[in-house]
Amino acid sequence: MIINNLKLIREKKKISQSELAALLEVSRQTINGIEKNKYNPSLQLALKIAYYLNTPLEDIFQWQ
C-alpha cells in the first residue's frame, strides 16, 4: 500500500487542489482522489507532483 503526504505538503505550501490540478493538467477530482488514497498516481504524474511541489518524491509517497 502506498501512503501519501500530498495533502499535508500541498497545504503547507499554501497551494489549493485546483491550483495544483491546473499546474499538472489534471482535474481537481484527480488530486482529491490521490489525497484520499482512492487510487495511486502513475509514475509520470507522481514525478510531476514532486517537481511542482519542489519536494522529493519519497517525501510525498511512501510504501507501507
Rank of each mutant, 00 (worst) to 15 (best):
M1I: 14
I2H: 09
I2D: 05
N4R: 02
N4L: 02
N4F: 02
N5L: 04
L6D: 00
L6T: 03
K7V: 07
L8W: 09
I9A: 07
I9D: 01
R10P: 01
E11S: 10
K13Q: 13
K13T: 08
K14T: 06
K14I: 05
I15S: 03
I15K: 06
S16K: 10
S16I: 04
Q17N: 04
S18A: 15
E19W: 08
L20R: 00
L20Q: 00
A21G: 07
A21H: 01
A21P: 00
A22F: 11
A22Y: 09
L23C: 08
L24Q: 00
L24K: 00
E25S: 12
E25P: 06
V26M: 05
V26K: 03
S27C: 05
S27N: 08
R28M: 15
R28S: 13
Q29F: 10
T30Y: 14
T30D: 07
I31V: 12
I31Q: 01
N32V: 15
N32E: 15
G33F: 13
G33M: 15
I34H: 01
I34R: 00
I34S: 00
I34G: 00
K36H: 15
K36T: 15
K36I: 13
K36C: 08
K36L: 14
K36R: 13
N37A: 08
N37H: 10
N37L: 06
N37K: 09
Y39R: 10
N40H: 12
N40W: 11
P41Q: 02
S42F: 04
S42E: 06
L43R: 10
L43N: 07
Q44M: 11
Q44K: 12
L45Q: 06
L45K: 02
A46I: 04
A46G: 09
A46W: 05
L47F: 09
L47E: 10
L47V: 14
L47H: 11
K48P: 01
K48W: 06
K48Y: 05
I49Y: 01
A50K: 02
Y51N: 10
Y52P: 00
Y52C: 07
L53T: 04
L53V: 04
L53H: 01
N54M: 12
T55N: 04
P56I: 06
P56H: 07
P56G: 05
P56C: 05
P56R: 09
L57P: 04
L57Y: 05
L57I: 12
E58F: 09
E58C: 09
E58Q: 13
D59A: 11
D59H: 11
D59Q: 14
D59T: 08
D59M: 13
I60E: 01
I60H: 00
F61Y: 03
W63H: 05
W63F: 09
Q64I: 09
